[in-house]
Design a protein around this nucleic acid. Structure first.
Lengths: 1293, 344
DNA sequence: CGCCGGACTAGCGATATAAGTTTTAGCTATTTG
DNA sequence: TGACTAGCTAGAGACAATATCGCTAGTCCGGCC
């Protein structure tokens, strides 16, 4: 009855208002928006692993505000939108409703954003309604806003959901409430489901009312996750008369229902849980079950005792960060379980426990840190021990307490300012300025609990000690941003938690089974919520609140210091600020630094700073949230994006488009496999490292614990300037070494401490991608991509019986770790076997024995393998050994492998083991040989340099250069690498540098000779990138021509990987700007700014990036397949890891996938994509002035110039060409004809079939013209057939 | 007999000027040397040694040589085109060029001087005390090129340290610099160009503006400066290469000073970053608790209200002395940063 | 009432900073076929 | 005449950042008609 068509509704609605009929809801009078539900989902073509579908989408995407390249109008606005969004959000949560409303108006003003404006309005409405008691006000407000203020905006299902939610909450009577709901439901755009799917608005209680009380909707209208929650109740309460219990809900066990039955609804609806932390305490029931399950397993008495005494209350038993406390060793228990059933039960119980812990981990870390400080403080106070040389934590607690009131005061002022409409004129100019600034940061500062902000600030600053090359301190810019970011993260996590508790507030989890259901619903809810939140605080806001907080800390934080009186030379005690803001110069440019006082730094050196590790970024205790969309996956409470595109919203835009089309499911799949591999800490390795660490001595790559930086004595004043310079350089070098040692040690400390916390735990690494699609674990510090030490600390949680092949592979692995990896497998096995005594010795007494393992290329991993091997060999049948150590298979010069496959280069393919062979080919030795041959040839002709060098060329000399050559190393870079090697042979520094320069040329030439095909492709890729990045795009580049004939080039190189991932090279000119903060201005780039691209980097980066995108594709495909075959899989780009026993399987799979990848001609595919994507682009060429076309162009220019009465610029030419094309696309035949008839400079050039012969490089005899963009022809492909690879066992080895 | 003085027309045939600019008008040069009254400073030409750095076309060298007839006049230049030109010039004038010689060393390289003086002993200046300007040694240089400014700043440091050529005494330097550099060096307290180098120049040298290019633009020397120095003015057409920034000639007379250079450096450098912030606040950037300390020592509130850009040299020296007495002063030798060491 | 002028300011762009110089591409003149 | 090379020069470059100043364009206010 209220379903009016749009036009008549407005009309009639208004009429009715004027008349007697007072509708219950004014909002109901609003027009019903038209719904656009067309979607373009094309069916995946057969055999497509992503590319076809994805490229189809990404070539002509329809972009939202993330795009910064597509539409010119939008270009300037996307940044505004993001800033407004974030400000709106901040104002709403800070309760600045008036300001929020004016922001809404601004958003409404942005045309390009109009369509999604209602989402912003909904957020406002939601908040607006929160503190009201009268439904009518809400309804009227909405009506008036949409009628008068935002006339072009139309409500959507979420708007209705909000109305329903509040109708249920606020209506005075059941009837009124029901009537409201009925009305709103009828206004639905596309059925009830649309409204009801807003589980972030409607609470479980709401659903129950709608279903059970009012019977307005059926259970099957609800989102699937909610069903179960309804039904449990439905059965117990309503006897299932109106609902159909069978719908979808069959998975509820009888037991669960029974358990629920005793409860009445009244009892169930408890008073609201006010905040997140209280909510957490409710969960203990489940933990009893966990304990019960665990105790039911076959355990040793000791373990039983441990579990019995273990407090499964997660809040008090998060990870173990205490040195002398031991958590239960879940890994030990798990590995000792005999039967699969027991393992399964154990796993289930542990996972459940970990679900809760993960939740805690991501949410309660700041509180935990604070509590620890307080605890230490109180303890010391109780002991009466508040000595001068205070413990760090006590100091921190004091700072915290001094800082807190300042922060609170500031928050108060911001709030006051926001509520005051007019400025107090009596204020001093300085105060006024301060208030002005408060307007900027105020909304953001009032979002997070001041206590938390203090803790975060302190922790961040301590964590940043000695970063950014500052000796004792950090860069200010980094500090303010870090603090700001941390605050933002905290806010997001809190927000999510708050929302969650709001929605689930009236759900009581009495039973264990029921809780599982709730948890599932929650997870869905979280995913939704996270996906929805695309808002990022602008860097500017981060910097501003960061600086405010930091300057407060600077103000209060003080330390005891010691100094020397310059006159009496006595030691003096004093007090000074712990932090000091100042500047340092580098190359004449100033750099803001935040210095940390030396005495504090010393104290920090001795501390274990685990608390400062962002807890949101630790390895996860549960399987990561599977990747489902560009921003949904990984951690549970922290938003992570699929691609780490710090400053490329452009790629995000493409990504969203293809993701929504479901074109990159293989990427998600591959990443999920990586994320689902469970790990645990290798306890034996941990103990050894821990021991080494505690000694404080340098060991392998762990630097020793030096406390003092000793500088060399100063030369006399009148010494030669060179002497002074040398002295300064020497000091710099010393200081750099010192500080890099310190940060290396600090890093090692992080690793060890995280490892300690995860001892005996089962954990996972959530992964995401860099912009080329390479996978990286999200958790920094401690992951399997880390250095040898990190890797040595980790083993697979799951163990697998070695079996005959496993044992062999374990031996091969050890040999590889020693760097003995270019021999045949048999020889490598023999290598290990010949060292069996060393293996035993290393494993048995790693620190006191002969220390053979330390000679390995990767000593820590070698030691881990030695230990594993010893355990195996000790057994009666070593093949029965259950192995956990990951065994690696590395591609031999993986980049070249891809190049060889692309180029079909037989010789190259052979060299990098794409061809089956009895022994692995060693490219490096081969190149070395080639180089020697060259040198000998020239030496014979009398070249002395060649003669000196020709005997000095070893494999090692060329290795790095050959390897990095693929990755586009520059001549200079390569020279440095070679110089490093040569300096071992030649003492004279200058000589060795000269020789290196000479040698580099020959190495390059040799590599080129050997990988002819590869280099042709490399050059082709480079040339394409160059042309694309110097191309002009008709639709947007018009205004970039402001500087006459020199345009700003805007087109990045964009391509689609075989898996369908769109890649946008992010190299743009850095549009860094100065941002004023409390401490100083800070130089930061705004990721949403549209900057011209950096053509040089686009060109230099493309060839290696393309190859990386291929190796990434290969890895993900292999991961996917390994996952399908039940393998535990991990990878470091071109090094694939699995259990020893599974290596053979993995090798087959990865070769299969490589073949699959290269079966299509990827280069041709790329060319086609380029041709399509850059179809209408123009390029600037220089052609011969005397050529026929050139003359014509000049004539036309002259003519047009006269008509215009001024110089005819390239911008004009582009404008004309654009017009011509528009006309030709027109519907109107007359216009089309007009277009055809038009002559532009571009059309003249376009008539020439092949422009290339006319091109000239540098001469005054040529002119600049615009021509359609053409790419060079693909270099011919060689005869190598990638299928040969199938039997090449040394491909990866 | 004297060396031939070539004209701009001839000298402009030299291919490359390497980004340097030279005044090539003999009359103006004469005017300049008149103004400098070199005869008073160097009463005994037969003991005078002149080191001419980056002489380039060497027109001024010839004129100077002709006027002073010094015992030795060494031109140091290593730029191929100039080397060629100078060698040829010397050959052409060989009979009149006693003591007029070229060394093809790079004046930028410190080693060139040890090479010239200590190793090959081509030119060995006498050591003089620091009571007066060295009266037997003169340095002439053209630093109008790219590297010029940087090199000059280092020479200033050498004056402060009494090393390099300044180890022989307070050696006068006549140096051509870009006008922008001259402006900086001569900036007085309160000038917006006041910077560390102006303070250092003022503290360690007595610097005079000898010659400037005639210039219509505003962004040039202010009238009081011109009034004070009364420099010789020359036309821009007398300068080769024709394109480039205007140039000026400075006369640098090192002072006898006893300032602790390192502390002075640190204090001026840091204070002048916040050149318009009152000392009261700016001092905090000198180190942990700088504000507290300095305020407790400096009684004069007027000084604390002043901005670094308005401070006189003696005020900077005063601050340096206080800084030096600070028990908790930061380590001034660790005042740098390794920007490439970025751990993420 | 409306209009206008002047004061004021936000915001942007330019410039200086320190003090051994960074690499590279492109341009020009020289050399050589 | 053209092509190639060497060597210069300039242009970007990571002044891989920040303080300050001056200019401009807009805003606000008060006075005047």
């Amino acid at each position: 009855m209220l379903r009016y068509s749009r036009s008549c509704c407005r009309f009639r609605g208004l009429k009715k208002l004027g008349g007697q009929l007072r509708p219950l809801s004014q909002t109901a009078l609003l027009g019903k928006p038209s719904v656009n539900t067309s979607s373009i989902r094309s069916e995946s073509a057969n055999g497509d692993i992503g590319f076809l579908k994805s490229s189809a989408v990404s070539i002509t995407p329809t972009f939202g505000p993330f795009d910064n390249a597509h539409a010119a109008v939008q270009a300037g606005q996307s940044r505004d939108i993001m800033n407004l969004w974030s400000l709106l959000e901040a104002c709403l949560h800070s309760g600045y409703m008036d300001r929020a409303f004016s922001i809404l108006k601004s958003l409404y003003g942005l045309r390009s954003h109009r369509a999604s404006f209602i989402d912003d309005y909904n957020k406002y409405l939601m908040k607006f309604a929160e503190n009201l008691t009268d439904m009518k006000i809400i309804d009227r407000k909405l009506f008036q806003d949409l009628q008068n203020v935002f006339p072009e905006a139309e409500y959507n299902d979420k708007t209705l959901a909000i109305l329903i939610h509040y109708a249920l909450k606020l209506s005075p009577s059941r009837d009124a409430s029901m009537e409201h709901c009925r009305t709103y439901l009828k206004m639905a755009l596309g059925g009830y489901r649309g409204i009801l799917s807003n589980i972030d608005v409607l609470s479980v209680q709401n659903y129950r009312s709608l279903v059970h009380d009012f019977k307005l909707i059926e259970v099957h209208d609800l989102p699937a996750e909610i069903h179960s929650l309804m039904e449990v109740n439905g059965v117990s309460h309503e006897n299932a008369e109106s609902t159909e219990p069978a719908v979808n809900g069959g998975n509820i066990s009888v037991k669960a229902k029974n358990e629920e039955q005793g409860m009445t609804l009244d009892k169930e609806i408890k008073p609201l849980v006010k905040d997140a932390s209280e909510l957490l305490a409710v969960d203990t029931i489940g933990m009893k079950v966990v304990r019960h399950t665990l105790l039911g397993l076959s355990l040793t008495d000791q373990q039983r005792e441990q579990i019995n005494s273990f407090n499964f209350d997660t809040a008090s038993n998060l990870l173990n960060f205490e040195k002398d406390k031991e958590n239960i060793d879940f890994f030990e228990i798990f590995s000792q379980l005999k039967t699969d059933e027991e393992k399964e039960a154990f796993t289930k119980a542990l996972d459940e426990f970990n679900q809760d812990r993960q939740h805690q981990l991501e949410n309660r870390a700041t509180d935990a840190a604070k509590e620890r400080w307080r605890h230490d403080f109180e303890e010391a106070k109780a002991r009466g021990d508040l000595s001068i040389q205070k413990k760090l934590n006590i100091k921190l607690w004091e700072w915290f307490n001094k800082m807190l009131p300042l922060v609170k005061e500031e928050v108060k002022r911001c709030a006051e300012l926001a509520n005051k409409s007019s400025q107090d004129p009596s204020l001093s100019p300085q105060e006024k300025k301060q208030n002005k600034a408060r307007q900027d940061y105020g909304p953001y500062l009032t979002l997070v609990d001041p206590e938390k902000m203090c803790v975060i600030t302190i922790l961040e600053l301590l964590k940043l000690n000695s970063t950014g090359g500052v000796i004792e301190g950090m860069r200010t810019a980094r500090a303010v941003i870090s603090v700001g970011k941390a605050i933002e993260m905290e806010f997001r996590a809190e927000l999510l938690l708050k929302n969650e508790s709001h929605v689930f507030k009236d759900v009581n989890k009495k039973s264990h089974e029921f809780k599982v259901l709730v948890q599932r619903a929650r997870n869905t809810f979280r995913s939704m919520k996270i996906e929805e939140s695309k808002i990022l605080w602008p860097q500017e806001a981060r910097a501003k609140i960061g600086s405010i907080l930091i300057s407060m800390l600077i103000h209060v934080a003080r330390v005891r210091v010691e100094g020397v009186d310059p006159l009496t030379k006595e030691k003096i005690q004093g007090e000074a600020p712990a932090f000091s803001h100042g500047y340092q110069y580098h190359n004449g440019s100033k750099l803001g630094v935040l210095k940390i006082h030396r005495s504090l730094v010393h104290q920090l050196n001795g501390e274990r700073l685990v608390a400062a590790v962002q807890p949101q970024l630790l390895p996860m205790l549960v399987k990561p949230r599977p990747w489902k969309s560009w921003n949904s996956g990984g951690y549970y409470y922290t938003q992570s994006t699929l691609i780490r595109s710090k400053d490329s919203p452009e790629q995000v835009a493409y990504l969203k488009a293809v993701s929504e089309a479901g074109a990159i499911d293989n990427v998600y799949g591959g990443l999920n496999v990586l994320g689902e591999t469970p790990w645990t800490v290798n306890r034996k390795m941990f103990n050894i490292m821990s021991h080494v660490w505690n000694s404080g001595e340098p060991f392998l790559d762990i630097p020793g614990n030096q406390n003092k930086l000793v500088l060399t004595p100063q030369p006399p004043r009148d010494a030669d300037p060179t002497v002074h310079r040398q002295w300064r350089l020497k000091n710099k070098a010393l200081a750099n070494e010192f500080s890099s040692n310190r940060s290396a040690r600090c890093d090692a400390n992080y690793k060890l401490e995280i490892a300690r916390a995860f001892l005996g735990e089962k954990f996972y690494f959530p992964h995401n991608l860099d912009f080329r699609g390479r996978a990286y674990p999200l958790s920094p510090h401690f992951n399997h991509l880390g250095n040898d030490m990190s890797r040595g600390l980790m083993i697979f949680w799951n163990g697998k019986r070695l079996g005959p092949t496993g044992l062999k592979w374990l031996k091969v692995h050890l040999s590889n770790l020693f760097g003995f990896d270019k021999a045949s497998l048999e020889e490598r096995i023999a290598f290990t076997e010949s060292h069996v005594n060393d293996v035993m010795d290393s494993a048995e007494s790693p620190l006191n024995g002969k220390g053979w393992w330390k000679e390995a290329e990767k000593p820590w991993q070698a030691l881990a393998t030695c230990i594993e091997l010893r355990e195996a060999l000790k057994m009666e049948n070593p093949e029965d050994f259950i192995s956990h150590v990951p065994v690696h298979q590395d591609g031999t010069c993986n980049g070249l492998q891809h190049y060889a496959a692309l180029g079909g280069d037989v010789e190259g393919a052979t060299q990098v083991n794409l061809m089956p062979s009895d022994r692995p080919q060693d490219v490096y030795s081969h190149v070395a040989k080639l180089v020697v041959a060259r040198l000998e040839k020239v030496a014979a002709k009398g070249d002395e340099t060649a003669a000196i060098l020709k005997d000095k060329i070893k494999r090692k000399v060329v290795k790095q250069t050959v390897m990095t050559n693929v990755y586009g190393v520059t001549y200079i870079g390569a020279t440095h690498q070679i110089e490093k090697q040569l300096s071992n042979v030649f003492d004279d520094h200058k000589l060795s540098y000269e020789l290196s320069k000479y040698l580099t040329k020959h190495v390059f030439a040799s590599v080129r000779e050997l990988f002819e095909g590869a280099h042709l492709i490399q050059d082709w890729l480079g040339e394409c990138a160059k042309r694309i990045s110097k191309s002009i795009r008709l639709d947007i580049d018009e205004k970039s021509f402001k500087n006459g004939n020199k345009p700003d080039f805007m087109s990045s190189v964009i391509w689609t990987t075989p898996l369908g991932l769109p890649i946008v090279q992010p190299y743009r000119e850095n549009g860094k700007k100065q941002v004023a903060t409390n401490l100083q201005t800070v130089f930061i780039s705004d990721p949403f700014a549209v900057n011209p691209i950096n053509a040089r980097r686009q060109k230099a980066g493309f060839p290696p990036n393309f190859i990386h995108s291929l190796d990434a594709s290969h890895m993900l495909l292999s991961a996917l397949k390994c996952g399908e075959h039940g393998l535990d899989f991990a990878a470091v780009h071109d090094s694939y890891w699995t259990h020893a026993s599974d290596i053979d399987t993995m090798n087959v799979l990865l070769r299969e996938q490589f073949i699959k990848l290269h079966e299509v001609d990827l280069i041709e595919q790329l060319k086609n994509e380029f041709d399509e994507r850059y179809k209408n682009y123009l390029q600037i060429l220089k052609i011969d002035k005397k050529a026929n076309v050139a003359v014509k162009v000049v004539e036309l220019r002259k003519e047009l110039s006269q008509k215009l009465g001024r110089q005819f610029t390239l911008a004009d030419e582009i404008y004309l060409e654009k017009k011509r094309r528009q006309l030709m696309e027109s519907e109107d035949p007359a216009e089309r004809a007009q277009g055809e008839a038009m002559t532009t400079t571009v059309s003249i050039i376009g008539e020439v079939d092949d422009i290339a012969p006319l091109e000239k490089s540098s001469d005054s005899s040529c002119i600049m013209v615009l021509a359609p963009l053409t790419l060079p022809p693909i270099p011919p492909k060689g005869d190598f057939d990638v299928k040969e690879l199938e039997n090449s066992k040394y491909f990866f080895s | 007999m004297s060396l031939a003085v070539k004209s701009l027309g001839e000298l402009s045939k030299i291919k490359h000027y390497y980004g340097f600019r030279y005044l090539l008008n003999a009359a103006v040069h004469e005017q300049i040397f008149d103004k400098l009254k070199l005869a008073t400073v160097y009463p005994e030409p037969n003991k005078l040694k002149i080191l001419d750095l980056y002489p380039g076309p060497s027109q001024h060298s010839a004129i100077l040589y002709n006027r002073c007839k010094p015992a030795q006049h060494v031109l140091m230049d290593a730029r191929p085109d100039f080397v060629k030109h100078i060698s040829q010039f010397i050959t052409e004038n060989s009979q009149h060029a006693q003591g007029f010689q070229l060394v093809t060393l790079d004046p930028y390289d410190w080693h060139s001087y040890t090479e010239l003086i200590d190793r090959n002993k081509v030119m060995v200046p006498s050591h003089k005390g620091r009571e007066a300007i060295h009266n037997e040694f003169l340095v002439v240089a053209n630093l109008t090129g790219m590297i010029g400014e940087g090199l000059f700043m280092q020479w200033l440091a050498c004056i402060g340290n009494c090393n390099w050529l300044q180890r022989f005494g307070r050696v006068k330097i006549l140096v051509w610099v870009p006008e922008s550099t001259a402006l900086k060096l001569l900036a007085k307290p309160g000038d917006h160009l006041r910077s560390k180098c102006s303070v250092v120049t003022e503290a360690f040298t007595e610097t005079k503006l000898v010659a400037v290019m005639k210039n219509k633009t505003e962004t040039s020397f202010n009238s009081s400066l011109l009034e004070k120095h009364r420099p010789v003015m020359f036309e821009s057409k007398d300068v080769w290469m024709p394109s480039g920034k205007p140039i000026s000639l400075l006369e640098i007379d090192p002072r006898d000073h006893k300032v602790d250079l390192d502390n002075f450096d640190y204090v001026t450098k840091h204070l002048l970053i916040l050149k318009s912030t009152p000392l009261y606040d700016a001092l905090e950037s000198l180190g942990h608790g700088g504000k507290e300390y300095f305020c407790s020592v400096i009684g004069d509130d007027r000084l604390l209200q002043k901005c670094p850009k308005d401070l006189t040299v003696s005020e900077f020296i005063y601050c340096t002395e206080i800084f030096d007495k600070w028990p908790f002063k930061p380590d001034i030798y660790l005042d740098f940063i390794d920007v490439f060491q970025d751990n993420d």
